[in-house]
Design a protein around this nucleic acid. Structure first.
Lengths: 184, 184
DNA sequence: CCTAACTTGTGAACTAATTCACAAGCTTCC
DNA sequence: GGAAGCTTGTGAATTAGTTCACAAGTTAGG
């Protein structure tokens, strides 16, 4: 039978075997002592835990460079995130197509969210406009937001917000480069 | 005099005032009791600490959708990251221009890094090729790597590696959506 | 069946991070 | 100049997270 051990997983994930076991044990105990974890079972259990079998309706708000790149990103579909809407406030962009999806006007966004078209909103708008868009989709009843705007956003507790902050990564790199002990 | 308090900063940053003070105190004590922090001084000190006044020579490796979007990202220059090189292994792309920068062949990468052309490498290649490119630029003597490949990478301790992992963000979102207590 | 070799799951020990709470210092105002 | 009102900086207390270490369970081989 195909199995793997917490030690294998730790090496792959860049962590320790104790960490792997503690983390997994949070969701139950699906390993076998002396043997390890059944790969198919572990895989299936993790899929269930992460909800990767489900499908989520997603809109991307802001069809700039990053928004456009994301619109064709395969990783979304692979994880059940189906991009069914694109929005932009620029009249030049409204009506154009990206893949099979037509760009709609941001004016229609709140109504569309309210009508249940989307579970998740992906934000690729300038920082200045980010909070107002957030308020809009929250008002419409969105469940989760993934933001790429490098700014602190506020949402009610029942809305899941995650931020990918490139600017912060760059500043962390800059800090590390500036303060490295060895001069290489 | 224009000042701000740890309490203000905490509210802006979504944290607590004690946290702000502890963090800042790590680098010295540049606030005034009873008054707070001088905004210009704090700003300048943070710029110094983060090394935002310095300049870093950067190459982007992998000119796909994300790589191309990043090539024209303003945030790099704002933080002193000057993109002076683009690389791709696809002969179709080699020789084309993105902005003022011409795409070069990945074959030339190690040599170019070795010659001191770059301090930082930004990786936007498929996961399968990520580690081999990492090994290449490390061999050439790169100082830091920012990777967008959703895979665990290994570098020597003296190379700074940061990873932006979109796939992980999506899985975290999926998990949160699946396991949310309130059904909305 | 028994021993040797593994590996999990998990309390206990330890380490790291956050929060508390307050003395000390600065400013303002009377 | 003295009292009142702020706010920092930081030890101490608390909370969170990681690692240790080992009993208990499993497999393999004689």
């Amino acid at each position: 039978m195909l199995t793997t051990s917490s030690d294998d997983l730790a090496r792959l994930g860049g962590t320790t075997s104790a960490q792997v076991r503690k983390d997994l044990s949070f969701f139950g105990s699906f390993g076998k002592r002396g043997l390890g974890y059944s790969v198919p079972e572990l895989s299936s259990r993790l899929r269930d835990i992460l909800g990767l079998g489900k499908q989520w309706k997603v809109c991307i708000i802001g069809v700039g460079k990053i928004g456009a790149a994301l619109a064709s990103y395969q990783g979304f579909a692979e994880r059940g995130f189906i991009v069914t809407g694109l929005y932009d406030s620029d009249p030049e962009k409204v009506g154009t197509k990206s893949g099979a999806v037509t760009v709609r006007d941001t004016d229609e966004l709140e109504r569309d969210v309210r009508s249940g078209k989307y579970d998740v909103a992906i934000l690729t708008v300038p920082s200045e406009n980010a909070q107002e868009i957030v308020d809009l989709v929250v008002k419409g009843g969105i469940q989760a937001i993934l933001s790429f705007a490098p700014t602190q956003l506020t949402v009610p507790a029942d809305v899941e917000l995650r931020t990918v902050n490139m600017a912060m990564e760059l500043e962390a790199l800059s800090f590390a480069l500036t303060n490295r002990t060895n001069g290489r």
